[in-house]
């Protein structure tokens, strides 16, 4: 078994949006839509400021509300726990969009719901997702959490990290290194 996950280093990331653009070209995401996006969170008061930059996307949660609530099972778990939407089975009811605490999904102009796939087509070929392989600052690590020797398993053992909205109880598989 594998459990795919991503670790994103907020120390390295400069918020350039290359991950967003690479995803759009790799996956033919139509202009005006995106599967990943950048959040810049400023805290503190001048001149004591902090800035956290995050490249966000579907968290491929281990307890994904979208999978649970999908009436047609179009939203499902594919290999390695990747949350996928079967475009043919999707009836566009948007229940999943309402259930996702991360706002990770959108309705594709062709009528189905779409979102990040962890570039499953590349992962199956042994490659990294497009965003990971393009990132100029090497801010992202993709890998298998069930493999204790994988880079991602190791980095999560040594570096402080967090997930987004853990209180939603979705068990996200995208981690932010702090």
């Amino acid at each position: 078994m594998s459990r795919y996950a991503m670790a994103i280093d907020t120390k390295r990331c400069v918020g350039c949006t290359d991950c967003v653009v690479a995803c759009q070209t790799e996956n033919d995401v139509p202009v005006g839509y995106c599967r990943d996006w950048i959040v810049e969170a400023t805290s503190g008061v001048y001149p004591e400021l902090q800035l956290e930059i995050r490249s966000e996307r579907c968290n491929h949660c281990s307890d994904a509300p979208c999978v649970r609530c999908c009436p047609t099972s179009a939203s499902h778990y594919a290999e390695g726990g990747i949350v996928m939407v079967d475009h043919d089975d999707c009836i566009g009811c948007k229940a999943c969009i309402a259930s996702c605490p991360y706002d990770a999904r959108y309705v594709h102009p062709e009528g189905y719901v779409d979102k990040c796939t962890f570039c499953i087509h590349r992962v199956k070929e042994g490659e990294n997702p497009a965003c990971v392989s393009v990132c100029p600052t090497h801010a992202m690590i993709f890998g298998d959490l069930d493999d204790k020797n994988s880079e991602i398993s190791k980095v999560l053992q040594t570096r402080k990290h967090k997930t987004l909205i853990p209180e939603a109880g979705t068990k996200p598989n995208v981690f932010y290194l702090l």
Binding site: C16, T17, D18, V20, V21, A22, T25, E26, S133, V134, C135, P136
Partner: peptide, 23 residues
């Protein structure tokens, strides 16, 4: 036309384009 990727042999990009180049 599909996408542009960096050439790993290139020291200016080390195989990774910036967003403008990717776009």
């Amino acid at each position: 036309p599909w996408k542009i990727t960096g050439n790993p042999d290139d020291p200016n990009s080390n195989g990774r384009f910036c967003p403008r180049g990717t776009g």
